[in-house]
Design a binder for these strands. Structure first.
Lengths: 131, 131
DNA sequence: CCTATTTCCTACTGTGTCAATAGGTTTTTG
DNA sequence: CAAAAACCTATTGACACAGTAGGAAATAGG
């Protein structure tokens, strides 16, 4: 289940794309338009800056803006940054985890296939597809 | 993310299918084979009985068994029972929930499409496919 | 009838994440 | 210098997850 973090973050990205006029867009405007608490968005947006998805500028006239064109972002990369991982099952989420039942597990192949389908969908979907 | 409840429950179903000899299979045997705490499985299995997925018999010689042939179960129905709902986003999980942004939400169509893909995969997958 | 086996039932608990809220500091422009 | 904005740290209440614990009721075999 995708949490509000991922969902709100995606909406911020869409808002930034739709209201892009070359300059920085203040978070207050985004929060108002999207009807989301500005304080909560700060946490999310901070993560997006750290992850290199967007850039921020302090001070008057500051705000946030995209660093790439909307068609260069995939929904998958946005969600992965905010959700940590988009994995359907815990066994696949941590690549270093070596499950003792890996060899004989009857469900693992299915989870892998399922994960592939999810991954393919989300990484083929572009931010520009949502405008 | 599918929790242990759903994953363990699915493995119980597979175990019941694989070890079906007409009579009831004690939970202890399943727990031993699957290397899962019997106590924890009790909770999961209880839910599966209540949901009509399997039936249980108390007393000596008792245990659990499937009520249908493995090819008659879908992975989707098993997971839905145990996880409550298999929905990628909260807005779609509760059918009665009327989101105020429903009309103008740019992400809703994508979530619906995504949910459809997930749903299709899990409900087309049969328990018998995992044996 | 007794006993071993098994499900069935209620309750509890520690840990962690989610979804915010609160209050302040720093940066920048007009 | 003042307003506006990002930036930063901390806290909180609620809830779900992943079990654990202990016993009651049911049932079959001897």
């Amino acid at each position: 289940m995708i949490s509000t973090k991922g969902r709100y973050g995606l909406r911020v990205m869409i808002d930034l794309a739709q209201n892009d006029n070359g300059s920085y867009i203040p978070l207050k405007d985004i929060a108002d338009r999207q009807e989301i608490s500005k304080k909560y968005l700060e946490i999310i947006v901070k993560q997006m800056v750290e992850g290199g998805l967007i850039k921020g500028l302090s001070g008057k006239g500051g705000g946030y803006k995209l660093v790439k064109k909307p068609e260069k972002y995939t929904v998958g990369e946005i969600l992965t940054l905010l959700e940590g991982t988009i994995c359907s099952v815990a066994c696949l989420a941590d690549k270093n985890y070596d499950c003792p039942r890996r060899k004989k597990c009857e469900t693992l192949p299915m989870w892998k296939e399922f994960d592939g389908i999810v991954h393919d969908y989300l990484y083929s979907k572009k931010l520009s597809d949502l405008l």
